[in-house]
Amino acid sequence: MTNRTVLVLLDPATEVRTSVLELLTIARGLGRVEAVALEAPTVEVLAQLGAYGVETVHQAEPARDGTPVVGDERHLPAVVGASLAAAVRLTDADVVLLPTSFAAKEAAALAAHALGAGLVIDAASLRDEDGRIVAGKRVFAGSWDTECAVTTDVAVVTVRANSAVAQPAEAAVEPVTEGFAVEVAPSAVTLLSREVKADTSGRPPLDQAAIVVAGGRGTEGDFGPVEELADALGAAVGASRDAAFEGWWDSYVGQTGVTVAPRVYIGAGISGAPHHRGGMQASQVIVAVNSDPEAPIFEICDFAVVGQLADVLPQAAAEIRKRKA
């Protein structure tokens, strides 16, 4: 087991997200950990990777027909996928781990296709069984647990956030950055523009937060109470799909939006349609606030308040601030 090499995707390489720290922790349990980046990691990032036991960062130098792929294009799934496949061939790695996101899933699929590797999407656990990688998944809106073994030599796996508690290695190492050439196949797809939404909220990202407070139709467009409770808890804010489509909030929790599995999920003014439940039912503790005592979300929660969220949420926030102080 210890001679296995595990590659972890680090994209972007300008920060190490919590989800990547979780991946590094899981990876150390499977073998020797190395990272793959599409740009030079910063000094801070290298120090953090070292603390988590990463000995080598493989920095891809992608090129198409001899022309280097630069700028935003490096983050395109085709380029990331080709880089991961090339890194596996270079290092003879056995496992590639990526965080679960739409872009990463695309890159993972392309890498696995190029390598003839087995692919697992959205694993919640990973272990070794007789030399095979076995992935656990929580499916059907968190109602079933499945386990599958990868039967090919190489396994490409995307792992959902909050699947492990990030733990630094026992001894820090000093990572070395090594460049490697990647030939990217010609593509007819052109990137016209790419804009990364700047998050100025100061809140944790929705997909990685330990606590999530989400608002739905019941907010009637006023997310003030939702934000107030979230900030008292240091939580991320999300919405239901309906609320997001109304334009009340950007990112929504649901099986077509962000899938969350936090320690605590609080849904306010959300009835709990199957679509929404598919995106949050794997949460450890579920709390609901709804004025309708018949709301389906009450069937899957651990604690609920039947009442107006505009009254309940600010009061809860004030109480938490008071008792935390």
Partner: peptide
């Protein structure tokens, strides 16, 4: 689940 009906103390 533990369900509380708000009579002024739901948030607490």
């Amino acid at each position: 689940p533990e369900i509380v009906t708000d009579k002024g103390e739901g948030g607490v």
